[in-house]
Structures are given as C-alpha cells and as structure tokens.
Nucleic acid binder design. Structure first.
Lengths: 252, 252
DNA sequence: TTATATTTGTGTCATATTAACACAATGACA
DNA sequence: TGTCATTGTGTTAATATGACACAAATATAA
C-alpha cells in the first residue's frame, strides 16, 4: 500500500473534485474500477481533489496513478456535474463519526462541491494491482451491468460516461486503448457491441472494419479454441489516429 | 439599463465561473455576443459566478437573461477549462486601479478560477437589446471570423465552442435554435456551411435534408429577391427531436 | 416590352455503402 | 472419423453519395 497523503486544505481548490470512470474490457464486458468505502456499504468512483497550482487534468492523472500505478492512460473530460442536489453530507458525517476524517475537516468536506467527470480507458490486463485511498477499504473492477450501491450521483456519472463512450466510439481511439496489442475480429466486435449495447451482424462488421484500413492482419491465429482459430489483428495506430482526425464516417 | 447587483462573496461558489458563447446567425455568418470591458481595450464572453445554492446551469441561464433579456434559450455545457495557466491577474489589477471593483475584493478576484464553458443558441432577430454587466461598457455581436482582442483564454473557449458545434450539428437541434421559424433551403445550407466551414453541393444538400423528413415545406416563398423566389420551410419539431434521439445518420 | 443576370428547383448517372442473407473451412473433442 | 461451434468470405438488392446539367423564376437593365 502506498503512503497516504494527508490533505492540505489550504493547497486544494475549494468546492471542486474530480471523479474518474476507468473503463476496462474483460470477458466481453465493460468493467469499471470502483472503491469500497470504509464507513458504509457503498462504493465510489476513484476521485480526488485538485491542487491550486495544478491543472484539473493533472489531478485526474494523479488519481489514476495512485489507484492502478499506471501513467499515460487515455483520459478524457466529459462533463461537469454541478447540480446543488448532488451534495449530501450523510457520508461525511459517518466518516467523521468513524474518525476516518478529523472533526476540523468537517466544514471543508461539507461545503458544496461540483465534480468534473473524466473517463479513462485502460487495457484491462495491464492493471496488475490496485491501491485504495484513505477513505476506502478495497478497490475492484465491477461489470457496468452489475453495479453495486454507490454514493451520491456516481451511478449517474457512470451512465453519462457510458453514453459519452457510445457517442465517441468513432471519434476517439476507444478500441485502441481498451484492447490488447493483438486481438481477433470477434473480440473487436464484442467490444463494439458492449459499448453500443446492441448486436451487430458479424459479416457486415468485419467488412466495414476492414474497409476503414486501420487494422493490420498478422499471420498468427488465436490457438486453443475448440473451433476455427480466428486471425489476430493489430491496430495501425497512425492510420487509426488519422481516421479519427478525418472522421471515420463524416456525415457532411 | 438594469440594476447592477453587487457580488456577495460569501454566497458565491469559490474559484468557479461560467462563460457563455452565445451564437446567433445573421447575414450568413455565425455571430457571438461579446462584452467590451471598462478598463482595457479587450472584450470578454458574457459570464458570471455560481451561487452556492444554485445549479451551475442556473448560473449560466441568469447570465443570458441579464444580457439579452431572454429565457429558455438552448444552452449546453461543453467543457471545463481548468488549466492553471488560464489565470492571469493583470485585468483584476486594472479593475481595482480604476475603482471598478473595490480593493477588498482583490484577493477573491485573484484566486485561481476554473470556468465552465456553455454554448447557447438564439434566433438572432429575437435579441432586441443587450445590457452590460458592472465591469463592461458595451455588449455587441461580433462575427466569429473577426473577433477583437479578448481577455484570458476566451478566444480559445470560442474556438472549442465552435468545434463542439461542428461535432454536434447532427446530434443537437442547432438549426432549429439558430434559424427563425421560417427559412429557405439556401439559408439552411448557409448555416451548415458556416458551422462546418466548408462548401456543400446545393443539390445534394437539399436532397439529403429533405430525406431526413424533418422539414415542412410551406406553400409560401421568400419574395423581394431579384431572382427566383425560394420556398419557405419550417422544422417539424417533433420529427427533428426524434431524429436527434435516433441519430440522424448513425454509423453503427 | 424584352433581354439579362442570378439563383432556385429538380433530375441523372455512376459509384459506394448498407442490410440481409448462405455456405464452406477450421479445429478441439468425442 | 464425425460432430459442433465458430470463423472467413461471398452474393444480392436497396439505399446513399458525389459529381454533374438544365429548365424555371424574377428584379433590373436595356
């Protein structure tokens, strides 16, 4: 476990937090990294505060580095959650009762917060171990389809992140960042189907994907399956990024 | 001129502002409402602060209502500008020197701010008069192609708003909110060309638009032009909104 | 009154894309 | 050697797109 940093209130931007929806793709499911809180039977998104002399995006990068030990993760801001109603102090009260945070921080924790939502994409298998923060007792992946009870508006934040992912599937390098270096066409399709929450025709999907010219077919196959071994592909990163700039399928 | 409200610091969310890129469409140009500051030869986006007990979006609505006297304007949050480098106090210093804000507010104004960018769409002709805020001396429309010198990162904010508009042309009711109730096909095309910053083929544009089935052809024509009078159309709002939900041209 | 200049409305055609299908090939395992 | 699930590839009809051409309308000039 890492050293716990104590919060130095005077260096923190007031009333502002960041929350990070970290997506991984495993077992044909979208998974999200969540923290189990110490004082209550609820889970939370990994999040944190922003130092006064740091960019907001840096704050989010720090959160990711602390939780999963990885840097240079794909990260994108998607929304500022700024409704008054999202603030609710029952959790803070419990934290103080359980002496997880000290009484003199009560006022600071109970101020009204707005939070910046970021989504992050990581190759699931690269996350070897996770670490908790000072108010949490465990940190685990959860399927987006089976989310546990969550604090505040965190479920809403996840929903919005998923909607954003859907919208940006053709304008951000989502496949590139969620899949391992090599993958099969069915795996790529499964990712698309999971993000889009709908079934796609296998044959049309393959043709369309190949027509984008962003895939490199290796001459290897995924062995060990009890049926025809599928080809392994890699992304052509240069062409992928160019396609994103040009718009995969620009309407106009 | 409206009554100037004085800022009550204790009721304001600290370190948080909103800035609003209000788009209008006039003379085949995208125009943006800007404020000329009192103390320096620079312009600024209409903006403001968020009261502690108000949603962030309410803060932005208030800004719009105060500047143009209109409510229920289409409004969409598009980005939180949270870099440290965007903060710069030379302007605050001038405001204090010119006694536009009082010395005791110096510290509050010089704290590090993050700002939430909203874009708003309004039918240009509905804006009859504009009003300034307490640090500004005039409030005028400017073509997005001929922006004056602006404070802080406001030019960057406008650029990002325009990029967002481009992206969302097929997923937000942009035509509906920028054009008057009745408009001609060439006017609609001009709007698209302005937002997209590229020329479109007149005949293909018309066909494609009509195929969306979101237009109602009236049996009137725009008279007084020195050539063939173009048909007037209206949007079918129900179908327009449905098309947005379904995705005009969903790729997958 | 007629001609002119300009812009609108509509159509064509070749090509590309999409949706909905069918069937042969592969490879672990029984 | 046969079975079974899955992969790889192909066909076809319908639809959409991009690049064009030409006739109709209308204020203004001649």
């Amino acid at each position: 476990m890492k050293n716990k940093k104590s919060i130095k209130i005077e260096n923190i931007h007031p009333g502002l937090s960041v929350d990070c929806v970290l997506f991984g793709f495993d077992n044909n499911e979208l998974k999200i990294l969540l923290l189990k809180l110490k004082s209550i039977e609820k889970w939370a998104l990994p999040g944190g505060f922003v130092e006064k002399d740091k960019d907001v995006s840096e704050g989010t990068n720090s959160v990711l580095k602390e939780r999963i030990g990885l840097e240079n993760i794909f990260l994108k801001q998607f929304y500022l959650f700024g409704n008054v109603s999202r603030n609710e102090n029952s959790h803070t009260k419990l934290l103080i009762e359980h002496k997880i945070i000290s009484e003199d921080l009560r006022e600071w924790f109970q101020q009204r917060f707005v939070t910046v939502g970021y989504y992050a994409l990581v190759e699931y298998s690269k996350v070897k171990e996770t670490t908790v923060d000072f108010i949490s007792e465990s940190c685990e992946w959860h399927s987006i389809n089976e989310l546990p009870e969550m604090i505040l508006d965190h479920k809403k934040i996840i929903l919005k992140a998923h909607q954003t992912l859907k919208k940006e599937l053709n304008s951000e390098p989502i496949g590139l960042n969620l899949l391992p270096k090599q993958f099969t066409m069915p795996e790529l399709q499964a990712l698309y189907e999971t993000v889009l929450e709908k079934k796609l025709d296998r044959r049309n999907f393959s043709r369309k994907m190949l027509n984008y010219r962003i895939l490199i077919a290796t001459n290897q196959r995924r062995a060990g399956v009890r049926h025809k071994a599928p080809k392994l592909y890699e992304f052509d990163e240069i062409k992928y990024n160019q396609a994103i700039l040009d718009g995969f399928n620009s309407v106009w």
